[in-house]
Design a protein around this nucleic acid. Sequence first.
DNA 1: ATACAATATTTGTATATACAAATGTATGTT
DNA 2: AACATACATTTGTATATACAAATATTGTAT
Lengths: 148, 148
Amino acid sequence: MNIEKYIKTSAEIPLNKKTIIHLMLVNNMIKEIIGEGLKSFDVSMQQYNVLRILRGQKGNPANLSTINERMISKMSNTSRLVDKLIAKKLVCRAICESNRRKVEIVITEEGLASLEKMDNVINKAEHTITSKLNTKELETLNILLNKF
Amino acid sequence: MNIEKYIKTSAEIPLNKKTIIHLMLVNNMIKEIIGEGLKSFDVSMQQYNVLRILRGQKGNPANLSTINERMISKMSNTSRLVDKLIAKKLVCRAICESNRRKVEIVITEEGLASLEKMDNVINKAEHTITSKLNTKELETLNILLNKF
DNA sequence: ATACAATATTTGTATATACAAATGTATGTT
DNA sequence: AACATACATTTGTATATACAAATATTGTAT
């Protein structure tokens, strides 16, 4: 992932600007590869993320704000995102009886089954993404990212 | 940028998955800070990127495919993106006489003036983003990102 | 010269996302 | 109880992006 080649520039780029561009390029690549993997399941990365959060609840229902708290990319519109998962019968929603403002969202059996298949694909995709770095390098990278 | 706190999880995440999430989180932060800076200029990051590319042409017109080649995030629809810049009078477009399929896009004086103001804001934003890392760390980070 | 493929861009359409306003519910104060 | 406020979600609307099909132009082979 050589940035000068990728954005076809010959100009000298200051180190901090270069780093930011570099991070964006790697992120685009990640999105592309993971998105490609999810394509056949007809779910977006955000939807996949919500499914994983719901599975992590181990049967306990989650409300929208809990989901939002745990999402990698927080979004203003988790409500409609969940609508789409309901339309695909991957999750279901009920009104919380103890606090009727809240909503209780649970992953369905079908959702769990689909998610398991997605995981296989995503694990491979993630391996592809990071395959060129060894453990030491990944650790160093995490330490550096932690500083942001 | 502690990922466990950020996505409120207690589960053990494999190193490569963790790295990918970490990269996505940092990228979201970058997008947020830069997007915030551009807000008052009413241009998106993509539009800003196109303006910079056009300035880099130093007077020479660029066509859509050239712009696309140089964009950090390639997109399928640079045509309409340019439309929006035209609507804001930041660029202008003409049909290329030697090859009428092509289009010649040039940044306007107004575009150059606005871009200069944007640069000030973006430089500050970029400084904010990377301020917690020193030169050595940024260099190491770039070396690692290069491996992807 | 005609037909066909390749190139460059534009347009239609569907989906995704951002932001603000609206809705419905609960809680605290007087 | 009546009111204002806070909370949780939904909805309206505008904009952004993705993908495929359509349009227009050029290059090439026969």
